[in-house]
Design a protein around this nucleic acid. Structure first.
Lengths: 216, 216
DNA sequence: CTATAGCGATCGATCGACCGATAGATGGAC
DNA sequence: GTCCATCTATCGGTCGATCGATCGCTATAG
């Protein structure tokens, strides 16, 4: 029975959400399968109708987390020419996902080490492919003279880490809206990259590049 | 016996180092006490001559990690007047420690959740006190018109997270020296904070603020 | 319309392995 | 002789995982 319950959540989905919450809160090793079953509202024996092993469950969440960044990230890169446009959209994607799907992002970022070698290798490959999108955008922007950073690789790591942190403190009823947070991270990113302010509409003043991001 | 062995490392120190390595690599919950004893070169029974419980061991490392940031951080704040000088020295401290003591930093940053409530509260208080040093410097700098950020709290989190990431990839025989890395992170920090380039000696050109940090 | 065979979902009970922690015996240093 | 360090052996509990039985639903044969 129960293809779906009154609330519209199937047991399989409840299992996945339960595991996600617990893995994000206590970590993979710190979470027992009995806790997962409890959180999902079923017994231990029933849990194993939905999962292969505990690690299968983690692996599925991991893939979901990484695919949710890599696939849209690739679309952005294909669709956007300028390095500046690319990095802006990559930051927006990264921050939004780390806020809206913060639990999945935490698990994706922190639990790679809990995978056994074969699966860990695949997860690392996905992560590396995603990071390469950022590095390429920053590298291109630097070569074109649009970005000015002390080192491309360091800037890549710095920006990725900075944007990932959102997952650990974001709350949907916090002081700032997600839009405001995203906008702020885009501004900080462009500032870190040493981008001249967009010469679109504003009166940039004679010297240019003044007080970007100040909130008077 | 063995107040110290030929290599100058006491058993107590070997135990602590073993736990540190394993906690950083596999996490607190993912590390068994038998692994710690093995890594320290003693048996399980002997291990308990040096530790109270497994959590005592984590707590000691935790305190060490946080004190190593908070105490020097407070000295910096007391000794340095300008927000800019403070943030530069805080970044240097944070990056150096996260590189040189990367394992301790990883444990300190990631394993707060593994502490039981009473100890966790104390650890969180230390972390908050440390973060407050950063926030105050950034806040002061913004109020004085020296920094220009979209939001003080967001900039604080962004910078702390960005600098903490160093612990996960730093290697003493990597491409860049620790000095170079530290210098780059200071530059990226000042850029993110929207600091005008230091008006000390250089020919800043008519427009000022050009290509800071570029390595031509 | 009814009887029943099949099937997916769930259950309680249990497996061997490993967990953190303790006890008691042994040995060497001073 | 005392004391600290270390050992071996073992404790009760929890871990991840599996088992066979049962439940309720559905499809179909008569």
């Amino acid at each position: 029975m129960a293809t779906h319950d009154p609330a519209g959540t199937s047991t399989a989905e409840r299992v996945e959400q339960a595991a996600l919450r617990l893995f994000a809160l206590r970590g993979f090793e710190g979470t027992g399968i009995r806790s997962i079953a409890d959180e999902a509202g079923i017994t231990l024996g029933s849990l194993y109708h939905y999962i292969g092993t505990k690690e299968d469950l983690l692996d599925r969440l991991m893939q979901k987390s990484m695919r949710g960044l890599l696939d849209p990230g690739r679309e952005i890169v294909e669709a956007t020419e300028s390095p500046r446009g690319r990095i802006v959209k990559l930051v927006e994607l990264h921050v939004r996902r780390h806020a809206e799907d913060n639990l999945l992002s935490i698990v994706g970022d922190a639990e790679i080490r809990s995978l056994t070698p074969a699966r860990r290798r695949k997860a690392v490959a996905l992560r590396d492919a995603y990071e390469a999108l950022w590095e390429e955008a920053i590298s291109d922007g630097s070569r074109q003279g649009d970005f000015h950073v002390p080192d491309v690789k360091l800037a890549t790591f710095a920006l990725l880490e900075m944007c990932s942190g959102v997952a650990y403190w974001y709350s949907s009823n916090g002081r700032l809206s997600l839009d405001a947070i995203t906008k702020a991270f885009v501004e900080m990113t462009l500032s870190l990259l040493g981008v001249e302010p967009l010469a679109s509409k504003p009166d940039a003043g004679p010297g240019g590049r003044l007080r970007r991001g100040a909130h008077p």
